[in-house]
Design a protein around this nucleic acid. Sequence first.
DNA 1: TGACGTCAAGATCCG
DNA 2: CGGATCTTGACGTCA
Length: 426
Amino acid sequence: MRIDSNVYNIGYACITLGLKNAGLKTCRLQNAEDDRLKGIIENNLNALETVIKYNAENDIRLFRISSDIIPLASHPLVSIEWCSIFREKIKKIGELIIANNIRVSMHPGQYTVLNSLSESVVENAIDDLKYHAYFLDCLGVDESCKIVLHIGGVYGDKKQAINRFVLNYKRLDKAIKRRLIIENDDKNYNIEDVLNISAQCGIPVVFDNLHHQINPAANKNSQFEWIERSGATWKEKDGPQKIHYSQQNIEKSAGAHSKTIDAKVFSEFLNDLPDRNIDIMLEVKDKNISAVKCILYSGKKYSAKHLETEWARYKYYVLGKYPEGYYKIRELLKDKTKYLVKDFYEIIEEAISCESIKNNEINAAQHVAGYFRKLATDTEKRRIINSIEKYREVKISLKSMKKTMRVLAEKYDIEYLLNSYYFIEW
DNA sequence: TGACGTCAAGATCCG
DNA sequence: CGGATCTTGACGTCA
């Protein structure tokens, strides 16, 4: 049982935006020599530690660790003993996770197929699941930290394909079984199928709202009834029920995740959820930024000072995109006794959705350029001015102009800029 | 055989 | 030379 007063824990997957030293590295199989791989893993573990600290500081208690944390981990040609080489480091991260009451998970991708017709594919899938379970075990986190898996392909005969899934599930080690949970997907296995499989092998079920919208069950229950039924597959030792929540990107094909979470739509969803502990994993392009938003939106324990912290990260972005919104937010944050989270995010979302206007972006860029005045060399300052001028003359993109400043912000380690959302591309 | 999804690595092109 | 922009990849299924 968690001490948290919130009923819902909200988290995000794999990548943390607007946080320095948080990026994961990878490499090609072709040049995955042990030494190179070792360096990459060290980088990734340091990044994970940074991210866990960030999550704790921002009250984010749910986080999916990327499968790429150990690149090519389950590839037969890669045999590096990462767990013993980095034992102390991984243990330290695990302690940090536990001390901060964060629930972590992992989620192998679409290529881990346990019910394949091909035995070698199944063996690879089992190896991959072993890796995921092993990483979580090395962290030392408990059984509530899960591995989410899709059922797999259909191969023209769903009944047989389901049978194969159940049979292959039985082959798995206890170390995998205690963590494995299954999710409805957007093509093959709807929530009713997944619940039927769960009934056969007792695996907890993750309900994914967007997959359900695209690939609904024949039985037209409301999504909240399916969430209730999925909830019944979770036992005490599994921890609170988990669900995946995302919104459709209306500019893209069905199933594509939105750039940011529409907070109003999310809070309506939240209001209709069963009144008990549920963990909600957001799947959204702007990752932790939406997680913070949804947490601030849903919690009763937050106040104006939390909005101020967030505003410090957004403000140059908003100034460039939507100056009127910038001044409106400054106004509404003046009254420190009020927690105007809805008004705040309404303006932020408006800023994200509107088109850039060149003069406004130039104005914001000049503000940001001010941070280099005392630090950068004259050549570098000229480089910044030149890039702003080239942007003005439509010779380079906004992205390029921002990149010039980002590179220098990294060089001089200007923390305020590196931890701001100014460089995020929505 | 290529699309699917993802995003960093790596290659290549440009000034 | 640095920077911008492109193509590619470990994986499996399906049309």
